[in-house]
């Protein structure tokens, strides 16, 4: 399990290659990358605040839970905080398993839980000022999928 919370940008290609190499021979690797949306150029930047300590703890718990539910051979969660421009990569997850179903389900689960159970808060900056991103009801509802 590899959990990283950092301000610095990351190299998605290099991280994916390294993770895949580490899991060589496993059979299946699934990756997901979250990117700052460019909603028609309306937004100048996004700032992500987090709760140091609890963030790492929550991500570890979520990854452990995924490992109990599916047969995962590897799991990476990398999430940035701080200021980012549209187009910048915010975070990534990667899962590895012998067969693809576990890796897909594991990555899907990690994303659902990470969105509403890991202590990150997004703030958007535009010409009109700054606004905190409101949590979506559907993100909370998505957790219900996992019982």
């Amino acid at each position: 399990m590899d959990i990283r919370v950092q301000e610095a940008p990351f190299d998605y290609g290099a991280e994916t290659a390294r993770f895949t190499d580490t899991c060589a021979g496993v059979g299946a690797v699934v990756t997901f990358c979250g990117i700052v949306r460019n909603d028609g150029g309306a937004m100048d930047a996004m700032e992500i605040e987090h709760y140091p300590g609890m963030t790492e703890r929550a991500l570890t718990q979520i990854a452990e839970e995924a490992g109990q539910r599916w047969s995962l051979e590897g799991c990476l969660i990398l999430h940035r905080y701080g200021r980012m421009a549209p187009g910048e990569k915010i975070m990534m997850v990667a899962t590895a398993s012998r067969h693809r179903a576990d890796a897909f389900a594991g990555a899907d689960f990690l994303m659902d839980y990470l969105k509403s159970r890991a202590p990150f808060w997004k703030k958007e900056f535009s010409g009109d000022g700054a606004a905190w991103v409101a949590a979506k009801d559907e993100d909370e509802a998505a957790l219900g999928r996992w019982g």
Partner: peptide, 29 residues
Amino acid sequence: VALDQDLSEFDAPLAGVREVAFFPPMTGG
């Protein structure tokens, strides 16, 4: 609310708790 870095509820007891955090619903990912 989180008590000692674990999500909690408003009716939770504070006995033994050292750190209390208040924040809006989380928006990660």
